[in-house]
Design a protein around this nucleic acid. Structure first.
Lengths: 125, 125, 125, 125
DNA sequence: GTGGTCTAGACCACA
DNA sequence: GTGGTCTAGACCACA
């Protein structure tokens, strides 16, 4: 994240996305404590209210639960997390291939472009 | 597009993206007349001011020019359009693979997932 | 309502309850425009943000939808409204009779007490 | 009670309500020893300070008195308890019928709904 | 320390 | 005019 918010999207939405990302990618595990509202506000240099709103949203989605005075914790529902991960990956793939198709790339072009991009990375490493 | 705007992003920005897309994908060719502000406002069911603003933006980017009383026309600068297309494709590919990597997919996983998705489409067609 | 909030319950929750009440009791009909955020804030003498939060909650519950720049409108889903009314009435009745039972009143006592209370009203009118 | 607190109301207030309820319903009789602060804190899984505060409140209302080293005891003032019971019942009845009226139920509807609800219980028992 | 609510007020998007 | 986001900062509930 590194605080580089897109100015055209509400900050709290971007924080929601970031938190969901942390959870479904397992960088935060079930039961883990999320950073405190104040800490994250400080880290991202935004108002605590903005962070709080983001936390409220992901709590409503059932991705975490809050214990007053103690903090917020990632849900223990591993099935839910897995399902969200699968949905996320599927959606990204279909969005990506759709965009490429609209730009005139054939399926073959798409596969080739991906492979070239990934191989380039391998050589660089 | 189909008028399904994301409520969290200014509509004029989404219209800009849509117009750029039309141009760099060659659905609108160099020299083609863009739809009139009124028509597009009507089609997207938004305020003409919003479309106006989008047109102003892509004109500033040099993607179109306006001729008084005649309308707006796609730039004739094919090199510029081609360059934008290449940049767009590169950016989408790197964004996509980055997201997949962050979700824990290896390069091999990514290629496989793409292939599966594309093959599925072939069978269905 | 008349602005007499219970100090022990968050104001926005009380506003949510009030709005739900207006809708399920049909004092506001499907499609009706809700008061503007600013107007209601003024009427209840609370901060617009507080009212906005209440509106956000009932929108999430599907009781209204918001059109930017135009206002919020009661949902057209009459079935949903009817269902909520039925649930509300059932819950109030069971809560009420439970409380009365816990206070030692028999079913007969409860019926009698209700009748006496209602008849008293009739005579007074 | 069963520890299912409403998160939107201070817990100590909910404990006060619960204790008053125990007393005016005669589940706790005049002179009876109230549970110790620690026991109740343990039973409700809340901080002892919270229970302490609730006890202070009902002591101020004259519903119990504390004897150093012995615990808290329900007041012996039966008249006071009876009066509170009557007030409670009256208030609940008028609140209930008011709510039902606001939902558009006539007096007849209210009586009928109560009777149906109570009869249903009888059959099930 | 940690979360929750609320206010006053700024500024933006859209009609 | 109408809704939406955000900030700075106060004050409360709970551990």
């Amino acid at each position: 994240m590194n605080c580089d918010f897109d100015n055209n999207i509400p900050i709290y939405i971007q924080v929601v996305k970031w938190l969901e990302n942390e959870i479904i990618s397992s960088r935060l595990s079930p039961g883990d404590k999320l950073p405190s509202v104040r800490d994250l506000a400080n880290q991202f240099q935004v108002n605590p209210n903005t962070i709080q709103r983001a936390y409220r949203e992901i709590e409503q989605k059932g991705l975490c639960h809050t214990r007053r005075g103690m903090g917020s914790f990632v849900t223990d529902d591993k099935v839910k997390i897995k399902k969200l991960l699968d949905e996320f990956v599927s959606k990204e793939i279909s969005d990506f291939t759709d965009k490429m198709s609209k730009m005139g790339l054939s399926d073959f072009d798409i596969k080739k472009a991906i492979e070239q991009y990934l191989n380039k990375g391998e050589i660089n490493d």
